[in-house]
Simulated assay, not measured.
Amino acid sequence: MTERETTRLIAWSHEMRRVHARLREALRVTREAVERGESAERPARELLLICHGFCSALDAHHTGEDRTLFPAIAAAHPDLAPVLRKLEQDHSMIGHLLGGLEAAAGSRSSPEVLASHLEGIAAIMESHFRYEERQLLTVLESLDLEADPGEALGTL
C-alpha cells in the first residue's frame, strides 16, 4: 500500500471525528439560541433556522452512514453486523427526536420545551457518537472505500 493510500484510509477516521465535532458545535449553537429565551408567542426566525440547520445536518450525517459507509463496513467486516444494527437503530431514534424538535420549533413551543427536546437529542447523540467512535474508528483506518466523504458522512 502506498503512503497516499494509507493517508486516504486514515483520513476516514479523522473525517468522522471532524463531522462529529461539527455536529456537537451545531448542537451547542442551537442550545444557546434556545437559552437566549426566544418567546413562546413568536420564536425568532434565527432559532427556527438554527434548529432546522442542526436537524438537517445530523440527519444528512446518519443518512450518509446508512447508505454508503455502513454497507462498505458490513462487506469488509461481517462480524460488525450487530454494531451496525445498533448504530442504525440509534439513527432511527435520533431521527424521531429530531422530528419532535422541528415540530416544537415550528409550533412556537416555549424555550423550556425546546430545551427539553435538545437535552434528549444531546444525550442520545453523544452516547451514539462515543459508541460509534469506539467501534468504528480503527475499522475506518483500514477500510478501502472509494466514496466522497460528504456522501458517506454527510455534508457539513
Rank of each mutant, 00 (worst) to 15 (best):
G99K: 12
R67H: 12
E126V: 13
A105R: 03
A74F: 02
S56N: 11
R22H: 11
H117E: 15
A26H: 08
M16C: 09
S107G: 10
G53Q: 08
F70N: 01
L97Q: 15
T155P: 01
T63C: 05
L118T: 02
E32A: 11
E65P: 04
V34H: 05
E5M: 10
S56Y: 07
E46S: 10
A76D: 09
V83K: 00
A11C: 11
V83P: 02
A105Q: 02
E65R: 03
E141W: 00
R22E: 14
T63Q: 12
L47R: 03
H20C: 03
A74E: 12
R4G: 03
A152M: 04
Q89H: 14
E41R: 12
L114Y: 05
T63P: 00
R108S: 14
A104F: 07
L114H: 03
I50Q: 15
L27A: 08
S110H: 08
L98E: 06
A60M: 07
G120V: 06
A11N: 13
A60E: 10
R108M: 07
P71L: 08
Y131L: 09
I10N: 13
A33L: 04
C51E: 00
P43E: 02
E102G: 04
H96E: 15
A44W: 14
V139H: 02
A21W: 07
